[in-house]
Amino acid sequence: MGVGTGNTVLKVDGVTKTFGGLRALDDLNLTIEEGTVHAIIGPNGAGKSTMLNVCIGQLKPDTGTVTFDGEVITGKQPFEINQAGVSRVFQTPAIFEDLSVLQNVMIPAIAHRDGKFKLNPFSILEKQDDIEGRAVEILERLRLTELMDKHAGSMSRGNKRRLELAMCLVQQPRLLLLDEPTAGMSRHDTNRTIDILKQIKEGGMTKVIIEHDMHVVFSVADRISVLARGHIIAEGTPDEIKGNPVVQEAYLGGSVE
């Protein structure tokens, strides 16, 4: 492809995760190249979200390891993995509903600057120009500036999703994980999100995106992996995946296109 740097940024190695009798992930192996947009597609219940949960430390795999940037991150706390440079947009927007939109973005900016714990009870928030400046800059990029002083909880679902994306981007993560970032969005909002995702390509950030909307997948992805029954059944460029008969049968066949 020639898009990425050739370095591996995330490596999922033989990960298995069972819930009771269900094998959600079954000896999953996946390599994500730095600087690419890597889409993971697959039918419902294929284990896509479980995979992300393992990557961010929300779930511990039964066996196998996840390596980020050459370092094993399985068993680490979610905040340690985030501080290492992994941010995630959730399927249902996880934002601070009771705070203002600006504050929602300032908090991750502070996390990026201060690390996992810093007690600064006497510095004044409004005087932290660096933090506010960066937050405003990101909000401008996502066209949320006019909603800056609004209660985050009072916004539409689409705006909440964009806000969550802003919260992740302000941290300048090395790896951004997106769980169905356009689910429930209007066509207009979806296209806007595609534009944003293409725009932030320039930063050298690696993105892993789980998506059902094939329009989105084929617009943004450099590489696609197809997940079914807990393991990867096919991987390749968008064109390769489109023409792959196994994928046609398991996933694309009839139901989507």
């Binding site: 995630r88 009771d98 504050q103 991750p108 996992k116 928030l125």
Partner: peptide, 21 residues
């Protein structure tokens, strides 16, 4: 202070705070 804001954010969504680092 930023400390106060972080405490309010914990009240609002503690899980998000952990995934925010």
């Amino acid at each position: 202070s930023p400390f106060g804001l972080k405490l309010r954010a914990i009240k609002s969504n503690q899980t998000r705070m952990q995934y925010t680092g």
